[in-house]
Design a protein around this nucleic acid. Structure first.
Lengths: 189, 189
DNA sequence: CCTTGTGAAAAACTTCACAGCC
DNA sequence: GGCTGTGAAGTTTTTCACAAGG
């Protein structure tokens, strides 16, 4: 969450940032931010703030984002295609190196520079250094594909389908349910 | 959050569900769920559980999802297109009735049955009964478009761009930062 | 026996307040 | 004067435990 805001500052070529500045931008309270950063180890400069580059480096380290993270995309539908070409992953050092789909019409075609492979050719992800997968398949298929991903050695899944999937606890799942996020808005308006 | 899980049960033609069943499915504790439901007013049947249809109706009422909610989509890029045709909105009673973009090449074309209009033709949304907007534009444009949406009477914005946007507090913003969600996975793996 | 609804206890999180340093 | 780092206070959320009902 912080990375986004701080990367923005980095682009602005700003050298230091105070907890108050960040609090305003992120709509948080400043002691909150200082506490969070203090868990990373203290490196703020009293009277000045936090060194932006140091801060980014520290957060990347903690999130294990210092090196390029390879990811596989499953599902080359509309959403899959949008994700495959989504420019936002770059900031976090993600690279989609494989795309899989089950539809014979799509297999063999390319999205960007990546060829779509058959989901049946999902090899050993761990061996290829791919630890993350993005699941952009229909809900009905999500659990089955997740099972295969787990088998292939995937360690983290970003699930874009509006359903829960069950995995061994060594695998982490993060679900984004777009409709649900929209669904909470009417309550507040 | 509950709607998704419970709608699933409804499809399974299950009549009653216990807090324990839901807890297992959602990876929560059962008293949590009972407490949440008790805020909606007590309607559980002791020894049996909650009536699924009643539960769904009650949640829809609270979230103001009982009637169709019209939404406008801004941005007809790859992500916008995927969202326009995303089938998941139906479950929550959302309908995308307008699509806007700034690119002259896209204006006039159709996505599904909806014609893409110029962002400059963004009329009075409130008058048209459109209270929600989905923002699928680049980060650089997000704030500017959000300002125009606010002006047009929009009350809730689902922001798909990886940035914060500032709006008057009568307007509610919900941001989905896809890359950020993926970004937290490496920390856990 | 199974399940709800809820007060009380525990835990987690947030905010405040201020000493210490630049 | 401005800002960090942090213990203490306050608040919210989560969990437990159990009475009461079908």
């Amino acid at each position: 969450m912080y990375l986004r805001a701080i990367s923005f500052l980095q682009q602005q070529a700003r050298e230091y940032v105070s907890s108050q500045d960040l609090a305003d931008q992120l709509h948080l309270k400043s002691p909150q931010i200082r506490k969070d950063f203090s868990y990373f180890g203290a490196f703020g400069v009293k009277g000045t703030g936090y060194h932006v580059d140091t801060l980014i480096g520290r957060i990347r380290d903690i999130l294990k984002l210092s090196s390029i993270q390879k990811a596989a995309l499953i599902g080359a539908g509309r959403l899959g295609k949008a994700l495959a070409l989504y420019p936002g992953f770059g900031m976090y050092g993600f690279e989609i190196v494989e795309i899989f789909d089950s539809s014979p019409q799509k297999i063999g075609k390319k999205i960007g520079n990546t060829k779509i492979k058959s989901i049946n050719d999902l090899g050993d992800m761990e061996e290829q250094g791919i630890r993350l997968a993005i699941l952009a398949v229909p809900s009905e298929a999500a659990q089955e594909v997740a099972d295969r991903l787990v088998e292939s050695g995937i360690r983290g899944i970003l699930n874009m389908a509006p359903c829960y999937i069950t995995v061994p606890k060594r695998v982490r799942v993060q679900t984004i349910d777009i409709a649900m996020e929209l669904g909470i808005l009417p309550y507040y308006v």
